[in-house]
Design a protein around this nucleic acid. Structure first.
Lengths: 159, 159
DNA sequence: TCTCCATCGTTGGTAATCCCAACAATAATG
DNA sequence: CATTATTGTTGGGATTACCAACGATGGAGA
């Protein structure tokens, strides 16, 4: 027997004989995968990746930051952040200099080229985002994000 | 500037100085990761994995099936399905015989041991599931899953 | 029947993502 | 001054989602 509380139908597609069944967390994961793929293609199609965009957005929003600060704000691992900054630096999207006030950390800063790249990626991403969320009305999107944020904040490591 | 449509606050935690920002799809991905980890631990703690549970649940719901049929119902790749059945078979949770009516495919069937395992995993998973979704009221969970299913069905490959 | 094509299971491998451990340099703390 | 913490960096591991190719088998059509 199927536990009605735990199991949630994933697909309603009429052509798939009996409806697929799975756990709620699986529906969440599958949907995140699909949305992530749809939006990710907007970035990879421009030669960038999700993490790079997250860093660009954070730099754009908060200005020059150290890598550790970017890690805290994006929830990326230090090693991955290093790779991301490497990529962005060789692309000329950011500059990285050791902070004279604290020589342990680097000052990562957006270049003009970086802002242009961020604008381009934002545009592509917005389109993909809208396309992916098309079936949801504006209020539904808001509600979805509210519920997700509630879940996220509840489960996020207390840091 | 931050695009209000695109960007969504992820954390509201007061101790994190300025609120973390990210794209909506990122919030979805992060939350899926957190929920997946919380629920996944319930399974790995019992020596099983998400995919194995999905197959067990599908077999329990639909009865003996071929691997290809299980693939269609769980959206798993054939190669991954093979590994999952291998694991379940060596655990004694399922039997795998070539179908005499169609010698290309195998008949995968739950054993009594498999049903017991499924029941155990279901119990653990239900608890973890409830713990992970604790901050959401019953109506909110329903609404979340409704929105996710809507998204999922819109983005799912037309198969 | 014979030929082509599709399906199935199986093997092996790739790429992305997330995560961890250790190290040197530097700063902060007592 | 001694100890501890933070930062960047390197290297690697684990998981997950894929993809390609192969032999075996079945089905569809000439």
């Amino acid at each position: 027997m199927i536990d009605g509380r735990l199991l949630v139908e994933i697909t309603n597609q009429a052509d798939k004989a009996p409806a697929l069944q799975a756990i709620g967390s699986r529906l969440l994961g599958q949907t995140a995968l699909l949305v992530g793929r749809a939006t990710g293609e907007a970035l990879t199609g421009a030669g960038s990746h999700r993490h790079q965009y997250a860093v660009l957005a954070t730099l754009d929003a908060f200005g020059a930051s150290s890598q550790a600060e970017l890690c805290r704000r994006t929830d990326l691992d230090r090693s991955d952040m290093n790779m991301v900054i490497n990529a962005l630096e060789t692309e000329g999207a950011v500059t990285r200099k050791t902070d004279p006030d604290n020589r342990r950390q680097n000052v990562v800063e957006l270049t003009r080229k970086g802002r242009t790249l961020y604008a381009l990626l934002s545009e592509r991403l917005t389109k993909a985002h809208d396309r992916a969320l098309a079936p949801l009305a504006a209020k539904e999107r808001t509600e979805l994000f509210r519920l997700l944020r509630k879940l996220h904040d509840h489960l996020a490591p207390i840091s």
